[in-house]
Design a protein around this nucleic acid. Structure first.
Length: 418
RNA sequence: GUGGGUGUAGCUCAGCUGGUAGAGCACUAGGUUGUGGUCCUGGUGGUCGCGGGUUCAAGCCCCGUCACUCACCCCA
């Protein structure tokens, strides 16, 4: 038996970086006033089809979609934003307070061909803000993300930002783009020839050489923004500059989901081969209304948790190694019973303690204590029990002292707790 | 979805033109009849991814399949 393709186990020896990221991220989000939200893994297919866009790759061919026993179309979530927007609307959160700031983490599912940094079940850390149109909300999120990566010690990252405009300015831009591409149609790749009908913006994102060539001198969204979008993007850029957050304005950054408006950005890494995006976000001012809620501006980002951890592993960013305060070596049945009780008592007091119940030799138990990274070992053998004096060995200094059994736990507490 | 590479012990890998499997690490026991991280000695452990075929004989050749991996695509 084995996991199905693109799915994997994350084993205990690899989990500490995940925990480090969660701890650091959640503390930062909380301090900026974000609240955790937990949402289902399974939703009606319709939710994603409507929000992400019928013609996107995700919806067209990557979703795990199946009917349940009553024939309802269900889908394992390929991303979180749609569900969070659904939740915002369903619970009428806008009524009590339209401004809501969320964070969450959890698995997402997309049926793509797996490779490094790309799994069919993968994890995202999501942050979303509803109800704020101001460009400072955009900057705050970019800053937050940047700061988190800095705290985690990441290097080799670059932030790419762009503005996609809004329903006001987009039609004019699309026309300009189509006019420009008119004479160059034959240069486009097969994919882009199709996109020109469905979603011409996406052509900007194409990496094939011929399309790149066709796009030389092509109009950029940022040169066709309406005054409101232009002001918005200007505030984003100038504020980031003032804060010293480095970024690149990337005219070809389009992003694959239909709901994005105005600011879009991606954080790219150089250490992960082709899977270069470790985080991506954008504004989606039309989504809440599209899903049946009141017109509500919103913006958010998602971090690729798996990719983030892989980058950290490549950069050899260490997390704290787990250590053990005390390992009790118990030789013989009598000692074992006592050791078990002491261990429970010490753990209740917050002293990390382990006992090995297999009845091994002293030597092998010392080896185990070493492997478990124990700072101290308490040796309880027949001699010690008879004399009512146990040996406490400091594994770092090799110093050994005797401790009376009568007052064992309190005595150990004072020595080990400091 | 398309194309390339890989798949031998828990891990990293060796295995000559086909002749019925090997190392290092890890694990384990002992050297020290009660003291770890170094050292020495022994031991456990392999359906050679899986299924089929060719052959007297297949880890090695052929076909299929599964998984991993890299690129395209797309994205986190």
């Amino acid at each position: 038996m084995q996991t199905i393709r693109g799915f994997r186990d994350i084993l205990p020896e690899h989990i500490s970086l995940w925990q480090k990221v969660e701890k650091e991220a959640f503390a930062l989000f909380e301090s900026f006033g974000f609240k955790e939200i937990r949402i289902p893994v399974l939703e009606k297919t319709e939710l994603f089809a409507r929000s992400i866009g019928e013609t996107t790759d995700i919806v067209e061919k990557e979703m795990y979609t199946f009917p349940d026993s009553k024939g309802n179309g269900l889908t394992l979530r390929p991303e979180a934003t749609a569900s969070i927007a659904r939740s915002y609307i369903q619970h009428k959160m806008y009524a009590a307070d339209p401004v809501r700031k969320f964070y969450m983490t959890g698995p997402m599912f997309r049926r793509e061909r797996p490779q490094k940094g790309r799994y069919r079940q993968f994890y995202q850390i999501d942050v979303e803000v509803f109800g704020v149109e101001s460009a400072y909300a955009d900057v705050e999120l970019i800053f937050l993300l940047n700061d988190l990566f800095k705290r985690l010690g990441l290097t080799g990252l670059s932030a790419h930002i762009n503005s996609l405009g809004c329903p006001e300015c987009r039609p004019a831009f699309q026309k300009a783009l189509l006019d420009f591409l008119g004479e160059r149609k034959d240069l486009l790749c097969e994919n882009c020839a199709r996109r020109i009908q469905k979603n011409p913006l996406r052509i900007l994102d194409c990496k094939t050489a011929s399309c790149q060539k066709a796009l030389e001198g092509a109009p950029a969204t940022i040169n066709h923004l309406c005054p409101a979008c232009d002001d918005h993007f200007t505030i984003v850029r100038t504020t980031l500059e003032k804060q010293g957050v480095e970024f690149i304005v990337d005219k070809s950054l389009v992003r694959g989901l239909d709901y994005y408006t105005r600011t879009a950005w991606e954080i790219k890494t150089t250490t992960l081969g082709a899977q270069s995006a470790v985080a991506g976000g954008g504004r989606y001012d039309g989504l809440v209304k599209e899903l049946g809620g009141p017109a509500t501006p919103a913006i958010g980002f998602a971090i690729g948790f798996d990719r983030l951890v892989e980058v950290m592993e490549q950069l050899e960013i260490e997390s704290i190694k787990p250590t053990l305060d005390l390992f009790i070596v118990a030789l013989g049945d009598q000692a074992m019973e006592k050791a078990y009780q002491w261990s429970c008592e010490l753990n209740q007091q917050g002293v990390r303690t382990e006992v090995d119940f297999r009845g091994k030799s002293l030597k092998s138990l010392m080896k185990r204590a070493n492997k478990l990274n124990a700072n101290h070992v308490l040796i309880a053998g027949e001699d010690e029990l008879n004399k009512n004096q146990l040996i406490l060995r400091n594994m770092n200094t090799k110093d050994q002292t005797f401790i009376a059994i009568d007052n064992l736990v309190p005595e150990l507490m004072t020595i080990l707790k400091k």
